[in-house]
Design a protein around this nucleic acid. Sequence first.
RNA 1: GGGCGAUUAGCUCAGUGGUAGAGCACUCGCUUCACACGCGAGGGGUCACAAGUUCAAACCUUGUAUCGCCCACCA
Length: 931
Amino acid sequence: MTIDKTFDPAAIEAKWYAHWESTGAFRPERLNAEPYTIVNPPPNVTGSLHIGHALDNTLQDILIRHARMQGKDALWVVGMDHAGIATQMVVERQMAERQQKRTDFTRDEFVAKVWEWKEESGGAITGQLRRLGCSMDWENERFTMDEGFSKAVIKVFVDLYNQGLLYRDKRLVNWDPRFKSAISDLEVETREVNGHMWHFKYPLAAGETYTYVERDADGIVTLEEERDYIAIATTRPETMLGDGAVAVHPGDERYKQIVGKLCEIPVGPKEHRRLIPIITDEYPDPDFGSGAVKITGAHDQNDYGVAQRNNIPMYRLMDEVASMRSDGVPYSEAAAQAKAIAAGGQWTAADIDALNLVPDAYRGLDRYEARKRVVADIDADGLVIAVESKTIQQPFGDRSGVVIEPMLTDQWYVDAKTLAAPAIEAVRSGAINVVPKSWEKTYFNWMENIQPWCVSRQLWWGHRIPAWFDKDGNIFVAEDEAGAQALAGEGVELTHDPDVLDTWFSSALWPFGTLGWPAQTSELDRHYPNDVLVSGFDILFFWDARMAMQGIHFMKEVPWKTLYLHGLVRAADGSKMSKSKGNTVDPLGLIDQYGADALRFFMAAMESQGRDIKMDESRVAGYRNFATKLWNAARFAQSNGIGGSQSISAPKAELAVNRWIIGEVVETVEKLNKAFAEFRFDGMADVIYHMVFDQFCDWYLELIKPAYVDGEKGEMDEESKTVAGWVLDQILVMLHPFMPFITEELWHALSDPTHPRKYDIIHAKWPAPNASADRAAIDEVSWVIETISKTRSFKAELNIPPGTRLTANIAAPQVSTAAIIERQAAALSRLGRIDQFVYSSVDTNNVAQIVVGDDTIVYALDGVIDLSAERVRINKAIEAATKERDALAGRLSNAAFTEKAKPEAVEKARADHAEKAAEAERLTAALARLG
RNA sequence: GGGCGAUUAGCUCAGUGGUAGAGCACUCGCUUCACACGCGAGGGGUCACAAGUUCAAACCUUGUAUCGCCCACCA
């Protein structure tokens, strides 16, 4: 098959992908081979391929194709994530377009609609991953909500519950008022926003007063006055309605006199205002604000802790959309009940929760509207001390973008601390190898301070929590309702917990749930632990850490031996890509424009030690050019009768140029293997790029190019054809993990028609040349390259047309040089335009001279030469050589260096010095010869 | 407040102790029969700053500055 003149990626990509997939190439039967496993981070079923996926999946595909070529039983597990909140959002948004909402349907109807959506519109990304060339095992594609996987999820829940590692608790959770659901700590992002801090007076009960004294650091009194109030600062006045106490630091002298007394919350109808105690707690910082803090246990994380420690009631003020509550008895009655409780009555958390302490006038108001009203009312009473403008740290839902409200609710929690301990140990002991290692510290820091993980979500789309309640609130956890009924006893009426599980709870099981667990399948046996997990560091806590915890807990073994973390792909200006900013780059557009191979190579070349990657389209274009270069090299090979090689071992070779290029292949394989062992993707790309461009195309192909004799193209020698064919094959194989499409195309195009390829390159064997570098060949080719380069160089600098043919004179050549010249005459003539070498001096000083190794080559020029330019040129070279010579001499004359430096370093310095000195000498002689 | 990372050529980035590198961009030359998405030849950097360790520092130590990210309960 003749290779087309132009390289058109689109023309070959679809063809080869379809071929691989239809022939089962991604998962060859290799039951006796060493297993190699990667599980793909399941993309959201709603997702489409973004640039981050392109990076993540390219890296994995490089690893899996490499492993496959090493003959391993390479399995790349693929599937999709049901993505609870994200998917429910998408479907609800579509409903909204038709003036429908979720609650127009029953839960079952809604869930059925989501499934319908999933079947029709979900999973667009799988086609896009194929376009990128990813060689996943599509035959066994999984979904986090498919039957088998769901079974694993339920079992994990039940087991953790029975082991006491999962429990139901009423705590302050991050409540997302838009989704009307709890979310985990990780799903909250703190942003700095402009806000205010209000300073209010909380009047002391019954008009009491005290002497307020403030002192500076030296104890000098700076303020002394009678006060009938305690000053409180808050950024959230609307939560005052739920205050249970005012706290001061136990060592705060200013308030000692009034600790234990009562003060009044200055909001609401005056006749019903509540009194709250002034207590002490370590939490308040005497140096901040007034040093006194109002305690609203139900709406603030810090206050929650104080309230718990001091048994202060926590009054919930808001409803599920974070508006002020409007349920319950009228405020007057509620306030009376609260007063009774405060006076020492018996109360339970449920009693408190039922109590709505929002004054009637504020009921049903949005929290921010309520804030305005509260502030206005306090102001009207003259109790505002000051209003400060201030940037405050505010929690936002990472998906909803709305302000999170801490709320006291019943949720399910995983005892993450217990599960984290062995996961920490696994990294510490090296059972999990974190690459780059610098991420270990971040991992440890988070894991060591891990908090209980809230796993219940008040959504409809997801794994329904396998818990049932009787009417007294007793909990029965079992894999199904019958099991729960059995636990509860016959005839007990049960209600199924309406909540679903956090999406990450299920995806944490991905490394073993996809392999058939809880069944003990052979797949599970072979492919767990996985070999590598490739993930962006942005999901280190969300996903990676949780996989480590769940994997070790349920499988008694780490989920993967290596955790490779890569960075983010950023926009060209370094900013984060986001749809809202409109600065995203579509990987599919890049594939259309430059080809998947070019995009993949770009990703590999830019991936270095987990650093972020700045998008640079010109580099993608550069790697498209690289692919074109390879394409044309293959065309050249084909036109010279160079076909596919049938050999893994390097062919025998006599010619120096062939022995040299075989050595280059050997070296490239070694460097590539090292880079793979170290997960240095940029290193891999660099090595193969230079092998193809510099060694193979720029020199080797040029050196073996047949000469034209009388206008007729000469025939290439057989040895070079054989070697070139073998080298090109090794290049294609080594490049295949990075550029799968073009290499597969060329692999077949280059096959010898009489001996077609026995297999696709995707199954070719990774190079093992069984050869070594050849010193003599390297020296010979290096001499040729240097001579040609320097000859071209002086022509360019002296403005001599590059095509000018010259005779080279060497007065007294080294014996080895003469031999090289004799063998390489054709190459020197064609590439260096050197007609002949004459071993004598020239009788003119109208010359250009170059120094190559121990020889000075003199070119006599027919008056065309600008001697002053040649002097400048040689002087520059002398300067460079003497500078280096002198630097080395300086070092060598330093006794401290020769005595203390490593012997190899001294030896090398001596050798380099001798060489530079000789070169300087020769150049100086050359300059003198110009007269 | 704690932690991590970055600072090297115009741009994007490699380089962890022994004479500063790549790609792109730039300059000059080339219709050399694989390739102008090309070929050849060049220019361009006191490696953020300061001090220290060392025979020797872009690289190790300490500090400073600037930028970025993550974590954290100052109302």
